[in-house]
Deep mutational scan, measured.
Amino acid sequence: MAAGGDHGSPDSYRSPLASRYASPEMCFVFSDRYKFRTWRQLWLWLAEAEQTLGLPITDEQIQEMKSNLENIDFKMAAEEEKRLRHDVMAHVHTFGHCCPKAAGIIHLGATSCYVGDNTDLIILRNALDLLLPKLARVISRLADFAKERASLPTLGFTHFQPAQLTTVGKRCCLWIQDLCMDLQNLKRVRDDLRFRGVKGTTGTQASFLQLFEGDDHKVEQLDKMVTEKAGFKRAFIITGQTYTRKVDIEVLSVLASLGASVHKICTDIRLLANLKEMEEPFEKQQIGSSAMPYKRNPMRSERCCSLARHLMTLVMDPLQTASVQWFERTLDDSANRRICLAEAFLTADTILNTLQNISEGLVVYPKVIERRIRQELPFMATENIIMAMVKAGGSRQDCHEKIRVLSQQAASVVKQEGGDNDLIERIQVDAYFSPIHSQLDHLLDPSSFTGRASQQVQRFLEEEVYPLLKPYESVMKVKAELCL
């Protein structure tokens, strides 16, 4: 049975990233139509530049190519590739079939990587351009969430054990800070992308030097003109047959890092959902379990974690691919890159769409948070109580021993009897502590235990987050809708 299948058929496997999760716009960027249309555009740009620099290419040939950029006979191309065992030459023939007058000058002087690699770089750039505003929107939604809850005390956790208090907004800023680093890295790697350009079979530009009869300047002009037509500021000066596969490492490393950030955020949300302090959106008709109707599973956060793990592992592909590119190139890269580049971007696209949807509907339960604080705060307040007693004339050592005994009794009630923490009640009825009984409410005010959390939130948002989001103001209103 021949390899390949009808990918629109229910009898043929289709990647869930495309069929179930990723956005239509990201799927289109990695589609065959987008790819092969870009090949034709690159052939047109090459012909236009070659004509401008004096090669015998007519206006009629150029116009014929322009008129057929979208006229792609995919069936013919597939048949040609089956016959020739070469995808680029299959599309040269297919393009030439609908451009008979231009057929002889299509791909003039070029090698397969002229269309293959340059198209990949265009796709990487455009895919990054799709991700950047999506990530900015996630940051914006979380920034709104953090600002609104900047002063809401909550129990902090280290080692997932109760620690000092923080605020809900401050905790959210930990998430935002990681995503801001990801946004900066995505922008950097996007701006650092260079075009492969017009380089020939081993990167020496020998074929173009021959076409222009040894004119170095025209060869350099050709490279520059096509690079500018493709919208790049610069091209690699040095290439082998391909652009260095280190570029793929750079791009997928940034995406993998984004995956790590999203995994951490969504894990926190899942843990908070278990504590009943916070939940992701839950639709009115949504079913959490087929057997347990009360369940409210954090399905979206779980999906993000599941896909983020996949995204983090994909960076190993370009690392290994770059390491086995012998001399000017081997074909070890080809099949692998067809999979890992598309999957990385479709996965990143999915987790950003999902995280935006989550961040637009996060639900906080202040009463649950308050109750958990009441359970733990008495123990945390013991040092403040000791200091207040010393100020009232008591002995630190005597007070410490009193607190120690009462704390152990209260802990026994919590752990052995399943009761509430009654340390404060014990202190309130103990005559030894009568000098500070009137101060206990103040000493137990949760806001006095959150330090500068709310001020940190305000400063972080104003100095770091809002300036970073400013270039994306025009796209901030787009909502994230999930079908599944």
Rank of each mutant, 00 (worst) to 15 (best):
N336A: 13
A2N: 15
S151G: 12
E48N: 05
H107S: 01
L155D: 04
K66G: 11
E279Q: 03
H437C: 10
Q210E: 14
L319P: 01
G104L: 10
Q184H: 10
P24A: 09
W39P: 00
H400T: 04
T158R: 00
N297D: 01
T111M: 06
P16T: 15
P366C: 08
K187L: 08
V363P: 05
Q177P: 01
Y21R: 00
F195W: 06
E213S: 12
T313A: 15
S207H: 00
M312E: 06
L440G: 04
I176P: 01
K246T: 02
M76V: 15
A322S: 08
L46E: 04
M389N: 04
L444V: 06
N353T: 05
G5V: 12
D349I: 05
N274T: 11
G451I: 03
I176Y: 01
F157Q: 00
G288D: 04
Q286M: 01
A388C: 05
F379D: 01
L311Q: 08
I287W: 02
R296S: 07
R452H: 05
P467D: 07
N68C: 09
A102M: 04
E64D: 13
F208P: 03
L331A: 03
R149V: 10
I385G: 04
Q285S: 12
I427N: 04
I105E: 05
K367M: 08
L482S: 10
A308S: 12
S112W: 02
N353G: 12
P298G: 02
P153V: 05
F36V: 14
S207G: 13
V247M: 10
F345N: 12
M299D: 02
E80F: 06
L55T: 04
K75M: 11
F157D: 00
A392E: 15
E464N: 06
E80C: 12
I369S: 11
S112H: 04
M380I: 09
L468H: 06
A136V: 15
R194N: 06
M89H: 00
N353V: 09
R196A: 12
T94S: 13
L53M: 13
K147Q: 13
S112F: 00
G419I: 15
P318W: 04
S412G: 11
H7T: 14
R303E: 02
T202Y: 01
E220S: 10
T354P: 02
V368P: 03
G288Y: 07
M389S: 04
L469V: 15
R149M: 12
D6W: 10
A146Q: 02
K35C: 11
Q41G: 05
G8A: 15
R85A: 02
T202L: 07
K477S: 10
I386T: 10
R338L: 02
S112I: 04
Y243R: 00
E220P: 03
